[in-house]
Amino acid sequence: MATAAASVHLVPMNVESDISDDSAVARRFQAGDDTALEAAYQRWSALVYTSAIRAVGNEADAADITQAVFVSAWQSRSGFDAAKGSLPGWLMTLTRRRIADHWRDRARHVRRVEAAAQVEPDEPEEIAADSVIDRVVLADELERLGDPQRRIVELAFFQDLTHTQIASLLNLPVGTVKSHIRRSLERLRRRLEVDGGAL
């Protein structure tokens, strides 16, 4: 199988992601539709790649991990059930596994090089990877927030304004600001539950 050369380089970064669209991609992926692999890559490769960079510390290894994640996701797609979980959640599970493998290989390599050394890097590195992935996932979800939520969240999270200060700044009712904050928090929490490191 091959693809016309014209479409081989077709990797635009989206990202106007909408949940129903995401699950349609997941269902097509599960059914073995190879256009869904490309769609999944367009949607979630940046998430996988950035998480990997942050977790392993360099772009070359992160590129290898990203490639391995999408190849193994496609080859083992029978193990994915769109009815039970989200496709990005599954991709992130594979990503965490690859990151863990990376550190395990690294530890083995170090042991081989320094025959006498007692190297136990697995535990601390993996814990660090989880919190790093959480931050990347949250950064992604924050970027997907539309206004006025996004503006409100910026002011509340990063400028430390109270909800009453935000309400007067944006000329919005206090109750509206509060419920926007609550909805955004809930959305971030759910996203973290699905894609985050703390599964």
């Binding site: 990797v11 490769s45 950035t50 590129a63 490639q67 790093v132 990347v136 949250l138 924050l142 970027e143």
Partner: peptide, 23 residues
């Protein structure tokens, strides 16, 4: 967790060679 986000945590796309490698 959100307040600990740094500029490095913002998403970057992988280089085109990654998709080519997958294909």
């Amino acid at each position: 967790s959100a307040r600990s986000i740094t500029p490095d945590d913002h998403l970057v796309a992988p280089p085109p060679s990654v998709w080519e490698g997958i294909r």
